[in-house]
Design a protein around this nucleic acid. Structure first.
Lengths: 348, 348
DNA sequence: TCTTTTTATAAAAACGTTTTCACATTAAAA
DNA sequence: TTTTAATGTGAAAACGTTTTTATAAAAAGA
């Protein structure tokens, strides 16, 4: 059959020819579908080994109508958060023989475009979309999905989509209550990230919830950084919180992430305030920085790796069972008590 | 042509039928190959829009013999390093309409397996392989490559492979010289990561180079952590460096990354030593932690993002021009002078 | 012994594109 | 005019699998 064998690599046809069987038989052997005589099987397997045949996954993808790839769309690669999410997602994917395709998409436009490239064009079997900003237009833009989509961070239950969330409100509530209940502070502050960020807004609400019980006005005690960063945390503390600190009173600051918390702490320290003695600080995320400072940072640990793992599993589940109702999973953060909140200080 | 149109999505055939042309014409329109009458083109385009047709990338991949995807194999997702590499790679890829598939592979076995899955099975058009440990068997295991492979971190020029490296030896030399030349220290130490790590070994050599000029023995002044971590840095400083510090003398410590540098600093401070006054510290990487501490860390900045970007470009270049000679690119680190080395202190 | 069932295999039809060829037209060159 | 070249289009052949259908041979049931 004078085929031009000078192509890039060995195909199932080559194997079939050498083994003297049909390609269907080779396929059956490769995919272990049975219905093939033991001796034939042995022969084909030996030829496969000898020719070093690897089934072409592009052809498999076309024929099987799936790619064994899951898309992961994130707003950016910064910080520990992405690494942890990736770790969990990859781990779960790997154990199911599935690959991960990562795309960074910032604005609504980009996100819609990314979902289209990954899903509509069939590059992946499903997509994990991290939506940390309030983009209802993203979901409108995406339209009805034909493939599994799980949304992270933002509550999209009303869209009837699979959803994994963190109970940010409860987490911030607990952090704030920790200051009020165990440290008996006179006042508390909240320093969030961007006000369009759903995590920050939920955390601000949790802060309010807690503060109401003290009978004080939450609005005057919460401030927002433009971005989740050390520098912003430092700056805003200097500008907004410092002027409110009075001698002889004790305070607690709930920061929306650990980077901001570091900024808060350094800003206070540079101003000569005793941290955590006079002002305690609790961060969010339990990123590596939280335990890599002299003053170990107390923080609300988010099970990010677990979120990544669950997201992949959800996609795989839905792939296996299309008809399932959309699920909404809400995870809880955990307070990791270290030094910056004031715990571990000798009682005065 | 009673096709079963209850399939998952619109194909080129549907478009052709509705527009009343052949699929070749639709393909020509979609790929903008010309040779199609203006009116026909307009008609087809309108049908495409109306039916919301997206070419199936799996079929394109099979037909075009490429996936427009590049594989990225890294040892882990920890730290800033991965995020930066990803950032650069993604940025360059995005601008060429190419996607990134990320795989984590730790041991030699896993790496070989990953290259096979990504390349031999045709899931990607080329692979970026980060080889930070001494695995000559990985390259043997991979065997001759039919697709572009660029190796990061480890010098594999003798294998005739594309290669992007950092001049770690020079970088460590410069860091060490900084202590000797501008801070006039009495002695210097090197605190590396794992001894099997190629970065660490190269940096240890650079340290030796510098130290030889002082006429002292490098071997007694270099120590190695099992992993690049804060805790190890802390522990080894306490155990190995602290006992060597004498009152009245000035020292410099070159740490193999910023995490270790933090551990060194905190360990010294906890022991009551004045940093950077008596002992200065320089880290590696310029990770975010370096500028998010009260004592800003001086560090050798590695152009990681640039490495990611160049790696993708190299793959793309080779894809465009197969015959090219393998290239070896060596990048330089840059000393970012902040506080921990002792600069910025008032002269005494 | 003659069905019927099972088993092993091959042939052929998808999967949804791109691409090569062939074949008309039409325009340009002579 | 007549030849040559360019243009617009469709048919058909890849691309390398999986999957369905068909068929022959062997085994089982009657």
């Amino acid at each position: 059959m004078e085929k031009q064998t000078e192509t890039e690599s060995i195909t199932i046809h080559d194997v079939a020819e050498v083994a003297g069987v049909s390609i269907s038989t080779v396929s059956r052997v490769v995919n272990d579908l049975g219905r093939v005589a033991p001796e034939t099987k042995r022969k084909v397997e030996s030829v496969i080994r000898r020719l070093n045949f690897h089934p072409n996954s592009r052809a498999q993808a076309l024929s099987r109508k799936r790619t064994d790839t899951i898309g992961l769309i994130v707003p950016d690669f910064e910080g520990q958060y992405f690494a942890m999410l990736m770790e969990g997602a990859h781990q779960e994917a790997q154990s199911h023989g599935v690959h991960i395709m990562v795309v960074k998409a910032k604005g609504a436009e980009e996100k819609i475009e990314a979902v289209s490239r990954l899903c509509s064009q069939g590059r992946t079997d499903g997509v994990i979309l991290m939506l940390s900003d309030l983009y209802s237009d993203v979901l409108d833009g995406i339209g009805p999905m034909t493939k599994p989509l799980v949304v992270l961070d933002q509550d999209v239950y009303s869209w009837r989509l699979d959803n994994i969330l963190l109970d940010n409100r409860l987490a911030a509530f607990e952090a704030t209550r920790h200051f009020m209940d165990v440290h008996n502070v006179d006042d508390v502050f909240f320093l969030g990230g961007s006000e369009t960020n759903v995590d920050t807004t939920a955390r601000a609400m949790g802060f309010s919830d807690a503060v109401k019980k003290m009978g004080i006005d939450a609005a005057q005690r919460q401030f927002f950084c433009r971005v989740y960063s050390y520098d912003e945390g430092y700056r805003l503390t200097e500008k907004d919180i410092l002027p409110l600190i009075e001698q002889g009173k004790r305070y607690g600051v709930v920061a929306a992430n650990d980077d901001i918390a570091c900024g808060v702490i350094d800003s206070l320290m540079d101003a000569g305030i005793y941290v955590p003695g006079q002002v305690g600080v609790i961060g969010f995320d339990d990123s590596s920085i939280a335990s890599q400072r002299r003053l170990k940072i107390s923080t609300m640990k988010i099970p990010t790796k677990e979120i990544g793992r669950m997201a992949v599993r959800m996609i795989l589940d839905r792939l296996a069972n299309k008809a399932k109702e959309p699920a909404k999973i809400v995870l809880k953060a955990e307070l990791i008590v270290r030094q910056s909140c004031g715990c571990g200080l000798k009682k005065n």
